[in-house]
Design a binder for these strands. Sequence first.
RNA 1: GCCCCGAUAGCCCAAUGGCAGAGGCAGAGGACUUAAAAUCCUCCCAGUGUGGGUUCGACCCCCACUCGGGGCACCA
Length: 824
Amino acid sequence: MSTDDREHAAYDFAFVQEKWLPVWDQLEPFKSGRPEDPRPKKYVLDMFPYPSGDLHMGHAEAYALGDVIARYWIQRGFNVMHPIGWDAFGLPAENAAIKRNEDPRIWTYENIATQKASMRRFACSFDWDRVFNTCDPEYYRWNQWLFLQMYKRGLAYRKDSAVNWCPGCQTVLANEQVVAGLCERCDSVATKKKLNQWYFKITDYADRLLDDMAQLEGMWPEKVLTMQRNWIGRSIGANVSFAIEGHAEPVTVYTTRPDTLYGATFFVVAADSDLAAQLAQGTEVEKEFKEYLEKIKSASDIDRLATDRPKSGVFLGKYAINPINGEKLPIWASDYVLADYGTGAIMAVPAHDQRDLDFARAMKLPVRVVVNTGDEDPNKTGIATTSDGVLINSDGLNGLKKAEAIEKIIAELEKNGVGKATRNYRLRDWLVSRQRYWGTPIPIIHCAACGEVPVDESQLPLTLPDAQGLDLKPKGTSPLGAATDWVNVKCPSCGADAKRDTDTMDTFVDSSWYFLRYPSSTNHNEPFSRKDIDTWLPVDQYVGGVTHAILHLLYSRFFTKVLNDMGMLDFNEPFTRLLNQGMVQMDGSAMSKSRGNLVRLSDELAVHGVDAIRLSMVFAGPPEDDVDWADVSPSGSMKFLSRAWRLSGDVSSAPGVDFSHGEISLRKATHKALHDSAFAVESFRFNVAIARMMELVNATRKAVDSGCGPSDPAVREAVEAVAIMISLVAPFTAEEMWERLGHTPAVALAGWPVVDESLLVADAVEAVFQINGKIKERIEVSPTITDAELEALAMTHPTIVAELAGATPKKVIARAPKLVNIVA
RNA sequence: GCCCCGAUAGCCCAAUGGCAGAGGCAGAGGACUUAAAAUCCUCCCAGUGUGGGUUCGACCCCCACUCGGGGCACCA
């Protein structure tokens, strides 16, 4: 088909797509980091994908949204870095490898190639020169390096602990990966296992992770901040030390209500704690205690999560002494107290804590009210009173309010050396070792004589042994253990026979700092250079799903703070702004093959074209809302793009024509669209931005057909503006329009036209006159009219005069130029 | 149970205390056409989940409730 024929043919998206891709490959409009680039920087980042097959609808939405933002800031004259890479370690590759009996590398790199090709065709504005994969040795060597830095600083350590274990994945899980008692990956019921594992000491950073959120306020979705606050779960209280009858060591409890110390009537230790076992040992209740312990151990985490199940426990026959009044408190063991929170023991104040009250009522233990809250007696109601009030039955605290009492009792306890103010956190240390193959090997050697010996940094990367010949099937121990040549080494310290650590790192380690690597992705000497970091970081705009609200975002914030302490960067928060996109659904539920409601991205692209799919995603509604594919109309998107495209063929003025004498009302529409859609994009209301573009297309159509005609400069100005604006979302169509308008590519770099403020003022606006809030008259007025002028117009208007019938209004409110409201 | 978000036309969604409708989908009619598709034009449709309150004026702010979605859930 000749170019001439093509001119008259209908808009052919497939042809246009194939036409421009090679041109863009050559122009590289999105290359960032050219030396001496004078433009201010903007780092726009999409969460990198896991290479599980080809891109799907969810990717399409996420990357379409990120692309709008990146392309917008380029049009606004910023030097935008918009990189991409692959989060390429992880279980699916390993499972696929087991199934296909081949190296997980093959599956992984094949999928990466597929996704990469799809992203190019999807016209993602990525800087392809910065790509890396976390499974590249060149990347994970820096995971190992960072691990060693953490180790040096005491932030990476091993301990024995009851850890979450997924029987499905046959590996341990971090707390964050257990959702409602289930493995977040495979939904198996997580169990507990006593194991020696590696941890990162994220709890050292709990306060900073919490307090630094102040700077994210208004920049991150409130929802994410709330979830992180809940997750860290800081509470403020006191540790109080109780002597135990017949037990040498005192036991410390943590309480947020030290003011209620006089209301303590019993004492509870976590049944699964070492302390409980110690207290029971050798006593007549030991047998009963052990039976109880067995019973609760067999209860799954799911059962434990039910908060309404009856309280249970065993009296241990011993007594704790209340340090403030010498009272003897019976000690119980129960599973309602958690072994790994606080000290694993509590003082029970049933009057003012619901859980303690439930337990007291079940075990017929006394309840003593020590705070008069004005509520009914918990003894009668069974409802603990937790609000503020006046202290009673509490000696020196009587008459004080809660806050005063807390302050006074803590001072007293501290004076007597039996307590002190303390904070506690729900957050636990991050368990980072995994018993699987496809991850970063932990760079530690275990020597019988020297203990843990770090691999020398010069020996990094410590690459994975060849998967060939290894049994990757999950069996609870790392497959690396079977790679004898790899495992058996000489101790770097003493030279004796030693073994490598056989666990690999949680893949969340990989994603905790990848955003720091993009600017230095080809640096072979360090994970990232200070110069690159200072140039590009922090990330100005991060885009991704809310599913990572806790895990990835919390870990990345933690890494950033550690690196800040190491002096490797000088900011505290990695992601200045965060946008969470919703999910793509079909008929109200998540798409999946098993549900039979899967919409294939490749099918949709084939039928409607890339631009129409991108547009549909972005136009469907607010970005954070879920999109239901049943509600969107890709054919409607195509229709709009065709309308826009057709305009570019109608323009009959020459490129470079002076717009200033163009038809004024269309010019106003153009500048208003430019102004309003920019504002909408900056406030993430992309659907609104597109509505403004549609308005301008409609207005231009009208101007061409029945207004100023196609030769008016205002028409060219409008259509050029349309091309630039829709380039954010429909880059192929925009490029084609730009060419038809007589310009050279790339439209992505054309620049957002400067808005002429004088054209944003309307000639006349409609004002309304109300009486008692009811509209009585509408008139055209100048937008610059004053309140007094408008009021005078209203009071002399025949309709209003007639309505008032001579009565004197009580009050007149004028809001020029919009309305006058007369209160009669 | 606690906390957060939402509810506007048949549907998806706009409207920063000031005329409820920007945009789209679906629908109806018309123009063009031998006809159809495409295209262009025009039109229909709710008084903002319910009940109170504040205000000259409330989709918007406050209180209570209903429904939907999400988060947390023995963390002392």
